[in-house]
Write a protein that binds this DNA or RNA. Structure first.
Lengths: 222, 222
DNA sequence: AAAGTGCAGTGACAATGTCACATAACCGAT
DNA sequence: ATCGGTTATGTGACATTGTCACTGCACTTT
């Protein structure tokens, strides 16, 4: 299931096609440790980042400490913001943080431009990523503007538990950051869920006990 | 300042470059009346839409009637959603409505694909648009999640009045839809502004009287 | 003039976010 | 095991924003 660096290189910069070999020259492989900040708001974009294996969280921070996760870039995906900024020469509007140790390919702008022109596969890849992120973002706007916090929290818990009755290792603060809410609000909602026997609460962990009930709530207004 | 259809065609599908002439064949010019719905949520994308002159509002609607404007596509811009969906073959996550009579070019998927491969200028154009929209969207998320409604309203009024002391023809409901808020909330805020002498309120119109004061509020937490 | 339609005003209440704390659990060093 | 520091959570009071159910007003049509 896991793709190797070579798989990705071969797919996006195939050596079979003429004139593409030199492209691989400029591509560098890096390994980034958890919690490292890949880019900050306002940074200029210099390289195209391609995640081979790992996870990058893209988030926006507020002045008062609140934050919201916009989306994640995972195995075999690329960071759209980077893509767009590279080409429109704008700076990053958000922040990217490594969530778990991540292996990535750093593609210099020149190589990126070249590949875009010469590889239809590469174009498809880049745009497919764009489309997904754009969809994610619109969904996020919708959730945040119209969605109830209990429904959104239930949805998040279901996503984190993989629909099953499991224990999730996460703090209330992290859940709040994910949803762009405040810790107190999440704590109260969890207490409500716990009161109904849907979850158990431990320090830094949530026990999903009644996935069916949570899922029913999560499905409201679909 | 206004670009003609030919200007745009020439820039994005230049006849000078070899083999591009046939591309123009499939491109069709259409004129769309105000309030027409260009695409709905869930529609599949078939064509690439390029606005020559006019304005398309892209919005999300909630079940209970609330709505929020995500961004607008204006003169010489293209609709990103369409771009991404075309390539990733997803369906529209939002709705597009013509705001004022709009002239647009309809580019079939095949022509779009072709042009993307053969014209660096076209690629730049497409990605530049993507980048802008992505930035707009992220900004929207930030505003909605962290921003105070009075600040956001002041900002909107300043944008609509062009920073000057002018009368704006708009209803409270329209302002609310723009910000993803509720009419009552906007009405109250406007009353507050009116109480301070910053604006005058008429039926379907707002008189901006103290742009400086509004602007100062609008600049909070930048 | 009467009726219809869309726009705006209002009070009561619900949901969510903010603030200022109090507790409690964990961790490492003694 | 105990102490002290750090991080996570609990809680009440309050502010802001959204919801609901109305009312009244202005303009248009008949």
């Amino acid at each position: 299931m896991t793709q190797t660096t070579d798989d990705i290189l071969e797919r996006l910069f195939p050596t079979a096609e003429s004139g593409l070999e030199p492209l691989r020259q400029g591509v560098e492989k890096v390994c980034l440790p958890a919690r490292q900040v890949v880019f900050r708001r306002g940074d200029p974009c210099r390289n195209y980042l391609l995640v081979v294996q790992g996870s990058v969280r893209v988030q926006v921070l507020a002045a008062n400490g609140r934050e919201i996760t916009l989306y994640r870039v995972r195995d075999g995906q690329s960071c759209v913001i980077t893509t767009s900024c590279l080409i429109s020469v704008e700076s990053y509007p958000a922040e990217g943080v490594i969530e778990e140790e991540t292996t990535a390919l750093v593609v210099p702008k020149a190589v990126f431009d070249q590949a875009l022109g010469s590889s239809a596969e590469f174009r498809r890849f880049v745009f497919a990523n764009q489309g997904q992120r754009l969809g994610d973002l619109i969904q996020r706007v919708e959730d945040v503007v119209f969605g109830r916090i209990d429904v959104r929290l239930a949805r998040l818990l279901m996503a984190l538990s993989g629909q099953g009755a499991q224990s999730i290792a996460i703090t209330h603060q992290q859940l709040a950051s994910e949803l762009g809410s405040a810790r107190e609000v999440i704590s109260r909602q969890l207490k409500q869920f716990a009161g109904r026997g849907w979850v158990g609460i431990g320090r830094g962990a949530i026990d999903v006990k009644e996935p069916v009930a949570l899922d029913e709530l999560a499905r409201q207004s679909d």
